[in-house]
Amino acid sequence: MMAEKIIPAVQINNLTKIFPVPFRKEKVIAVEGLSLRVEAGEVYGLIGPNGSGKSTTMKVLLGLISATSGSSAIFGLSSSETASRGSVGFLPENPYFYKYLTGAETLSFYGKLCGLSRRKIKERTSELLSLVDLENARDRRLGGYSKGMLQRIGLAQALVGDPRLVVLDEPTAGVDPAGSRKIRDLIIELKQRGISVILSSHLLEQVQEVCDRVGIIFQGKLIKEGKLEELIEIESQTEIILEHADPKILDQINKLVQASEETRLLRSGKPKTTLERLFLKETRAESEDVRKDA
């Protein structure tokens, strides 16, 4: 018996998208010959500079625009079929929602579009508002939401239909570090629940933290793709991080390195935290102090 063929969450084959320029003969090639595959349960990061074709690729995948050539499919169903979006959640870059609706009404509206029952909508609305930390703003109209809150309600609407694939286009654009961290935590949680995620970003550190595999897209072409650890590994170097190291031990290591013919010590010293981690640590400590004082 033949082995059963595994259907990936996303399969894009040789995708090319060309946009005609109105009233001119020239054309803009947004994506050229791009192929990628996202396995079920995998978090895939599509990184590249602005205008490199990330959003166009996502739009073709979600059936918002059609491919000039090539194909794309979600769980084996062509992107041109509406049924392919039955288990997809999408968060566009800088999303705008109906600002006259409240947070709860927004989720209810999208829940109805996903075909959820009234009871299920009620359950999912409470669950998701709690997940994205917007319970206090559930009855406030979106017109009064901050940028970070909009991004979080956007993520909640993407998850309302309990999707098996989540597509996030620049999910942390314009969000403060704490909000950004919250979104990353949510992505990690999705991954733990076996949900496939494809996200685009030009904030590389974020991608590094959450993605299993990464594709680098430049001028419409996928120029590099692979597992994150393999891509960022520097083959010729080795890192040793010691805690509470005795100066004598460090001295011995130095001597051993000097005795070797090929090995060179490139750098030693205290490892640095990131500015973001420092910001989060300090703001968290400050808010705890305020709470204690209160």
Binding site: L62, G63, L64, T82, A83, R85, G86, V88, F90, P92, N94, P95, Y96, F97, Y98, Y110, L113, C114, G115, G154, Q157, A158, G161, V167
Partner: peptide, 14 residues
């Protein structure tokens, strides 16, 4: 213009 349509049409809505 507001791209609200993206969030609607990426649900299973013809």
């Amino acid at each position: 213009e507001d791209r609200t349509l993206y969030t609607i049409l990426t649900k299973p809505v013809p």
